[in-house]
Design a protein around this nucleic acid. Sequence first.
DNA 1: CTGAAAGCGCTTACAG
DNA 2: CTGAAAGCGCTTACAG
Lengths: 359, 359
Amino acid sequence: MDETHPSPRSLTIYDVARHAGVSIASVSRVLNGRNSPRPETRERVLRAVAELGFVPDGAARALSSRLKEVVGVVFRRPVDEFSVSDEGENLLFVDVINRGVEIAARRQSFSVLIASVDVFDTHPDARIDSVAGKSDGLILHDPLLSAEGIGRVAKRTPIVTLAGSVTPNSVNVRVDNEHGIRELVRHLIAEHGYRSLAYLGAHENSPDSVARGEAFAAAIERAGAEGISGPEWRGNYMADGGARVIRNLFARNGSLPRAIVCANDQTALGVLYALAERGVRVPEDVAVTGFDDIPVARHMRPQLTTVRQPIQKLGATAFDVLFSLINGERPPGTEIVLPTELIVRGSCGCPAETAVPWD
Amino acid sequence: MDETHPSPRSLTIYDVARHAGVSIASVSRVLNGRNSPRPETRERVLRAVAELGFVPDGAARALSSRLKEVVGVVFRRPVDEFSVSDEGENLLFVDVINRGVEIAARRQSFSVLIASVDVFDTHPDARIDSVAGKSDGLILHDPLLSAEGIGRVAKRTPIVTLAGSVTPNSVNVRVDNEHGIRELVRHLIAEHGYRSLAYLGAHENSPDSVARGEAFAAAIERAGAEGISGPEWRGNYMADGGARVIRNLFARNGSLPRAIVCANDQTALGVLYALAERGVRVPEDVAVTGFDDIPVARHMRPQLTTVRQPIQKLGATAFDVLFSLINGERPPGTEIVLPTELIVRGSCGCPAETAVPWD
DNA sequence: CTGAAAGCGCTTACAG
DNA sequence: CTGAAAGCGCTTACAG
């Protein structure tokens, strides 16, 4: 009644061995490309495998070979994205990183186990443990775990964090926020002569946002310009956060700085919209900049001046480091920093770029 | 010399049992939320787990419980995306689907095993088998496997295809291409009075592109308008493909139709650029439409008229169906079709939309 | 409620 | 080169 088709107990290596008239050891050797089996044996096994349609069980392989050929990736993602109209944009960043991980993993015949935790989940430990148990190594986006948490899980599995913090038991991979922001602010001040600039950041527990804010403050300080930031200038890495900050500013009759340096491109997108609502011109009245250089940045009006970071490469690097750790190599250090690059387009006040893609 | 740190043989359930002074059976029961262990036992186990920092091995669990709590997703992706400047856009579609899968999987505490195969790989069987062996079920994008191939793998693992073909051993999940294109063509002809329209398709082995082409031809036929298509009108679902078709058209002095119906939004994006290069105005000289309604569609100039398909929901549905199959339920049918919706914006000739997002 | 033991499906020394 | 057998780390009847 329950099981109409009592799933015909799936094939095992024993079935193949019997069918080929050899031992399971020989089947295993052939399947794993050992060159010991002689041609005839190999042939018989291969034929049996083909005739039976045998696919070896990964769990059993992993258990006895102590290698799963899987790396886990855990990151935060809102529960319900279906309601948001621009769902596709909001978390693109994470997806591009994951793509980088996957592409690098493919080169080593690894697969990537993806698992998200809710944004408000303060104790993602259980989910992380579950993924850790299924992987040979872990990539953690953002600060998902405390340093102690990392220490605990790292006893079982090597860990690489992405834009996280440095801990004694993991390797952190991040981009050079300092350099990017320094160049950007220098450009705004030296080339355009802006004197009052605001930093529109994100969550306070985002190492990236904090680092960008600090680099911003330092650059402003050095130039002797006016730097604006603080709680009213806090977004959430998403367009709605950026729009909200600007709308609130108008609501309380606050005055606009000459330039707004956003923590990322999506925030800048929201800012652009909120400014357009009020008829404020960019860059004539206010300059706006981003960070990331996501693909839409080129399609915004005006095109967005931003700091490019190698998003996909970030993921690929994380995998490569993790892979070497899995193979027992020693960590290359506690942190790997990838370069960033200032991308000047129209939103800072420079003449709009006219290059056409796909040439 | 090889192993500096002979990885201290990781903890097992035996270590925990010994430390807690109970049997491994009790440890297992506590860890799996069985309510048989009495409070005191439970407490001792939990304490031992915490003190030792124990994380159970997923492979061993999977092997003995016959459930991995993993679904595999396999899809095509170019080898080297790092060179392409608009990397982020090109394969967004796949990533959004995968996101849908992951979000649905999370609700059932499943993780998603991601693996791509190269675009030119004609025999992805080995990689697919590898993923199949590590999962409880498989989601295959596009036609990755022949019907026979699916039959073979399906003997071990339930399979759901995404925008694939109907086979006796799998369930296909797709969107209603027919309805979307019918509405779109009707709009272009009835509302705008266009009489010559071209369909700019993609690969011939893409069921989606073929279905859209056929629906296009049928709608054109019904209306008695002029339909243009064929080898010169074949792109690749990417912006460069769309741009190439248009440039080639100009190169051979071909004449432009009044409207170009593209197989997807990215193709339309490339068309828009190639048209702009020549100073051709959209929609005044030529109308251009897309399919998908990816986020950038709203940011293009003019904003793109397109057919929205619930991309993320496609992935979520695939997971839900697969999950029921994994649980031994019978297939809901051979195919599930999700609705599409015409989204009218400026590129077809309608007055541009002015709505601002994030309100 | 709890424990001893079998078994999940492979890989891999160990002999021959 | 090949096979018998142990073992990977869990879960789960089966007894008690």
